[in-house]
Design a protein around this nucleic acid. Structure first.
Length: 550
RNA sequence: GCCCCCGUAGCUCAAUGGAUCAGAGCACGCGCCUUCUAAGCGCGACAUCCAGGUUCGAUUCCUGGCGGGGGCACCA
């Protein structure tokens, strides 16, 4: 809370200072965490950024700004540092008050943070119900779910949605595939269609079919398989700790007539033309479009392509009042992004209201051996198998730790080991250790369970290890804003690693229950309560559990 | 051929254009368990693919290479 709140004050004062001295400050006044060798809590590069335009010496500017900012109540000291930084030490009382804010009212911060209260919709996973979810969906699920949780934490109205492609030709194709499996099991001659779904899972599903299945046609078989697979998707997401506010069926979209209505709407906007007997969307020349060609909406045979109902679905998102629309895609769909953006523009929506998060593929290994994933070939690794092997917590933390842009190497053998090589233990262990200290403290009568936590006495918590934790805790809300800005939970996961890394040395050097001065012990107890709550909070936002003991 | 992503320590990854110290974890070397969990801590080694450019300042931005991954349908 303190860093985010303090930024406003510092920025306000800096603008006043800049105005008085006619110094052109940059639009974006960001704060830096200073490097390790600088003994300060917050660092401002603002004078450096302004120096050139002002034609002044950056160090002189920094000195002047530092003097001005040292009057801010929460600031202990503000010092200029070459080549033009202002380094700020925050008052101990302010950091202690921040600790109380985290400990007592963890739900209070965020509500008054920067940023609009816009309604935002995050769509993710949206896998076709033609096979089990595979592990790439796990990455998308981690991204989307964590992002929604973080945005809600920041006071946004965020919703999660899963779009189910349950209509179209694939139902029959799926039906033909599973029917072939069924007949094969009966000893009859039957082949899965060449372009059909080859995975063994269909044989398993066929074996579970009721007796009357003998008389089913391909369509009926397709419905049966799709229902079962969709149900497994729901189960997988539940086990993975992922919540969707709505599972939006493509068939609903067709039933509501939204598809032809959307086509008419686009025609009315003059974005549609006919060529070669087909109906096209002018994505090539749509405003702000980066697409490299026009796209077909209705095929020559009169049937819509997948693109048209997708546009109808996105139109529906806006029609339902969402002002910000975020789609999470795997890298294999990245080519889809420019045309979707063009479609948003064609709908007349502001292009900046739409964001596509494209996460790169996961490279899966078993030890040294690369495992190829292919849904068609049926040799993919199902997400469920991954969860069963390495656990939900490790899986989600591992996925959350990387930026979506990075190609992720996931070694099943390594992840299965459940040793310290897995960073999630590093963080969870801190939570468990603190739980242990609290149990000891309760035995020693140092704290009443569930008792209210007062603000720690600011005379204490001045050791480097204590101070480092106080400082780190102050950055948590800022980290959440980073996650929102970057549309990724990875800054939070990395923050938790760093926080955990600061706790362990504290633990070694600063006894809590056994502190020589009982008052100091009390203050430390309040400090680690803050650490515990921050970790619990952070892990919860990532969908990872925070065990009391391990 | 065109488009997207990546290239940082032995390995897996961080770092809104900032600091003579580019951070973690694992692995490696040396220490540390009569005291709140050694799944830990301290210390030590080890890195920005190459070449230009922009800038007071580049891992970050631009151009061109090199290397790896993915995508380019009137399929879904």
């Amino acid at each position: 809370m303190i860093v985010a709140a303090l930024r406003k004050k510092l920025a306000y004062e800096a603008r006043k200072w800049a105005e008085a001295g006619s110094v052109p400050l940059p639009e974006n006044l960001a704060l830096n965490a200073p490097p390790a060798h600088v003994k300060a809590d917050i660092s401002l590069p603002w004078p450096l950024a302004a120096a050139k335009a002002a034609k002044k010496n950056p160090v002189e500017l920094a000195k002047s700004l530092a003097e001005h900012l040292s009057k801010v109540p929460e600031v202990e000291s503000a010092q200029a540092a070459p080549p033009g930084f202002v380094n700020i030490v925050v008052k101990q009382t302010a950091l202690c008050a921040n600790l109380k804010a985290i400990t007592l009212a963890p739900k209070s911060y965020g509500a008054d943070e920067d940023g609009p209260k816009t309604k935002v919709l995050v769509e993710f996973v949206s896998a076709n119900p033609t096979g089990p979810l595979h592990m790439a969906s796990g990455r998308g699920a981690t991204l989307g779910d964590s992002l929604v949780r973080i945005m809600r934490r920041l006071g946004r109205q965020a919703s999660a949605e899963y779009y189910v492609n349950d209509a179209g030709a694939r139902v029959v194709l799926l039906g033909e595939s599973i029917k072939a499996r069924y007949l094969q099991a009966k000893g009859q001659e039957a082949a899965v269609p060449e372009k059909g779904y080859q995975g063994e899972y269909l044989a398993d599903l066929a074996a579970l079919a009721p007796p009357e299945a003998a008389g089913w046609d391909a369509e009926k078989w397709g419905r049966y398989a799709m229902d079962a697979l969709l149900s497994s998707h729901r189960d997988d997401m539940k086990v993975f700790g992922v919540h969707f506010d709505r599972w939006y069926l493509e068939s609903e979209l067709f039933a509501s007539g939204a598809v032809p209505k959307t086509l008419e709407y686009l025609k009315g906007r003059g974005m549609v033309f006919e060529k070669d007997g087909a109906v096209w969307l002018g994505t090539l020349n749509a405003e702000g479009s980066t697409d490299d060609k026009d796209r077909v909406l209705v095929k020559r045979d009169g049937k819509p392509t997948y693109f048209l109902p997708d546009i109808a679905y996105h139109k529906d998102k806006y029609d339902r009042g969402f002002e910000r629309v975020i789609d999470v895609f795997g890298a294999d769909h990245h080519g889809y992004v420019p045309r979707m953006k063009a479609a948003i523009a064609a709908l007349g929506k502001p292009p900046e209201s739409y964001h596509a998060i494209v996460h790169q593929l996961i490279h899966l290994y078993r030890g040294q051996e690369a495992v190829k994933m292919s849904k068609r070939a049926g040799t993919f690794i199902p997400l469920r198998e991954l969860i069963d092997e390495v656990g939900k917590d490790a899986c989600r933390f591992f996925f959350a730790l990387r930026t979506p842009d990075s190609h992720l190497n996931f070694d099943l053998e390594l992840a299965k080991r459940q040793s310290s090589e897995n960073p999630v233990f590093y963080v969870q262990y801190v939570h468990a250790r603190i739980g242990s200290i609290f149990r000891k403290a309760a035995e020693a009568g140092l704290c009443a369970p569930g008792g209210e936590m007062p603000m720690p006495n600011a005379r204490y918590l001045r050791d480097p290890e204590e101070r480092a934790l106080l400082n780190k805790l102050a950055w948590l809300p800022d980290v959440l804003l980073d996650c929102e800005r970057l549309l990724s939970p990875h800054p939070l996961a990395n923050y938790l690693m760093e926080l955990a890394g600061l706790f362990h040395p504290f633990y070694e050097k600063c006894p809590v229950v056994a502190a020589s001065d009982p008052e100091q012990g009390k203050a430390r107890l309040l400090l680690i309560a803050g650490v515990r709550d921050a970790i619990r909070e952070g892990l919860d936002l990532l969908g990872v559990s925070a065990p009391e003991q391990m």
